[in-house]
Design a protein around this nucleic acid. Structure first.
Lengths: 353, 353
DNA sequence: CTGTTAGCGCATTCAC
DNA sequence: GTGAATGCGCTAACAG
């Protein structure tokens, strides 16, 4: 394809890109016909359509999406708000989301809040300004105030895990209990009596939910949760290291540690290594998320999987459904997502027994 | 801020968002004045400006960027093409790039090629359709054909590392030699005689450049490169594992392995672990990139750092400069970026000596 | 089935 | 310093 442009003498050194009129002129049809041909409206005469496409190809013409959006009211952009793209949990989702978006001719407006309310606010503003047709919120529990601005504008929303049960908002509910129960029972079966849990930042609903799931799972099997064994982390590797230090300082140390996410687990393992503690021989560790790198660290991390691909798929589906429906839609849809333990090499029989 | 909208009876159940006319009406000024006020044109009467802003705030009005772009010809979008967002090297760049973009009121159109020529092509198409004002290409060496389409449309481009020296294209040249030489000399100082190198995919110019830098550095200190010790990887952890298997199968095994990127190094370490080989006691490993997780794996990875923040900063700067210049710009700018060894715990004295 | 026409929401001429 | 009018590139009525 030769991407031709034509230059007007008036525009010094600046070449005007083709517009629909130029295509129409060269194909000897009206602009309306060009528009129809390009949008593959079936009622257009195949002869003409072919002529149009020929010119389009020859000149490397690409419709101006801004103009298109302006008149049609459809921008074909979905917003994607994540807490931080540098958390390895998110890139997989972004990738999958993009894959699907490309298939559906949608574009993505990706913003991250970096846990900063100001950035959260600006994210929402950017979404509104660009007139996204829907927004997937993957912050796992930040301010719901933001939501109001979007909801008010009737922008379809899908929340992962933490969405409030308000009308017109879809939710992907995650069954934390299932995977975490599997983890706890796995450790119990390995004769661990002293199981610790490093939480995420407890301002996040998802972190609270995981903590509750842990406590519930422990109680289910007739054990009690030692308060000292539940320490707050922040879902970073540094936080995991800090948490381990606190745990290591205890008189009676845990023989197993479950973590609210994989980064935390990696930090815990790293700090344990610095303390000369061998994993899994002296300490069992279980993560959460199953980020890609989890299977490559040493030892490979036993963790609880939450399918990133599936999250992306469901989120996109929810948004697309809302957009394609012409009736305003009474209630958002609800999706459920399971979590499951995946066994690797970071757990073993409790040593002291 | 109360994001008011007004509903017309004609639009059943659908509320019209404010437009500039509605603001003008309520502020009792013309649309031109509203436009000027919003764009902070200094010649507008402060009284009127205040009146306009008051209404804007009250109604939660956000200008329609599509319309704005259409008339001004400026979309305020920069494209960012990466090879794959799931490679932990990129999220940091994306994050930094976004941070800067937000400051400058730019939006990012992020696309990944996933090493697929089709996706590369569609990336370029998406960029053109959305009329981005510039594109940063961080694929480290994919087809340059794509470039033509953009270059032809006079879209400012900045390449990292692999840009051809064509007019109107900026480049961020990376000094691989510097960091890799440091790595090689570090290993030599540790008395390693048998140093292997796991390359990236050799279709990538950046991978070739790293390999050359390695070979050159080895020769510089009077050693020769054992051909068997240079094996091709693919910049993934799986590739690293495979590469190590090949290296482990050699009669005379290397005592140190340098890798073309950190993922490869992590794969190598992982496979070495499976072979019961202890790092760094029996094998020294050096990575490249210094991704965040490198400092948290066990043992912490000695690697060659290439500042992701700096890459993002330079790329954005190059684009912005091109955009703000009104004269078409003869030649793109050239930037240089250094690489440096960062010592951690994955290297040690050669054991067999 | 095709062409003509009228906006989409805004920035930017021009008169005033 | 302000307002009325024009057009950015395209789609959707409508008329033919």
């Amino acid at each position: 394809m030769t991407a031709n442009v034509y230059c007007t003498s008036s525009s010094v050194g600046r070449c005007r890109i083709m517009d629909i009129r130029e295509i129409a002129k060269r194909a000897k049809v009206s602009t309306a016909t060009v528009s129809r041909a390009i949008n593959r409206i079936p009622t257009v005469d195949p002869q003409l359509a072919k002529r149009v496409w020929k010119v389009v190809e020859e000149l490397g013409y690409y419709p101006n999406t801004q103009a298109r959006a302006l008149v049609s009211g459809k921008t074909r952009i979905f917003g994607l708000i994540v807490s931080e793209i540098t958390n390895p949990f998110f890139p997989e989702i972004v990738q999958s989301f993009e894959d699907i978006a490309v298939q559906h001719n949608y574009e993505i407006l990706l913003t991250s809040t970096v846990h900063d309310p100001k950035r959260m606010e600006s994210s929402v503003r950017r979404m509104i300004e660009r007139r996204v047709e829907g927004v997937a919120v993957l912050t796992f529990g930040m301010e719901e105030a933001l939501l109001e601005d979007l909801r008010f504008r009737k922008v379809p929303l899908v929340f992962v895990d933490v969405g409030p049960p308000v009308p017109r908002v879809s939710n992907i509910r995650i069954n934390y209990q299932r995977g975490i129960r599997q983890g706890v029972q796995h450790l119990a079966a390995l004769r661990h009596q002293r199981i610790a849990f490093v939480t995420g930042p407890l301002v996040l609903k998802s972190a609270i939910a995981r903590k509750h799931a842990f406590e519930e799972s422990v109680r289910e099997i007739g054990m009690r949760v030692e308060p000292n064994f539940v320490v707050e982390g922040d879902h970073t590797m540094e936080g995991g290291m800090l948490a381990f230090k606190r745990l290591a300082g205890l008189r009676s140390r845990p023989t197993a540690i479950m973590c609210s996410n994989d980064l935390t687990a990696i930090g815990v393992m790293r700090e344990a290594f610095d303390h000369g503690i061998s994993i899994p021989r002296e300490l069992s560790v279980i993560g959460f998320d199953d980020v890609r790198v989890a299977q490559f660290i040493i030892p490979p991390l036993t963790t609880i999987q939450m399918s990133q691909t599936e999250i992306a798929r469901l989120a996109f589906k929810a948004l697309l459904q809302d957009v394609e429906r012409d009736t305003p839609a009474a209630n958002g849809s609800e999706y459920a997502l399971n979590t499951d333990l995946v066994l690797r090499k970071s757990t073993a029989l409790a040593s002291g027994q």
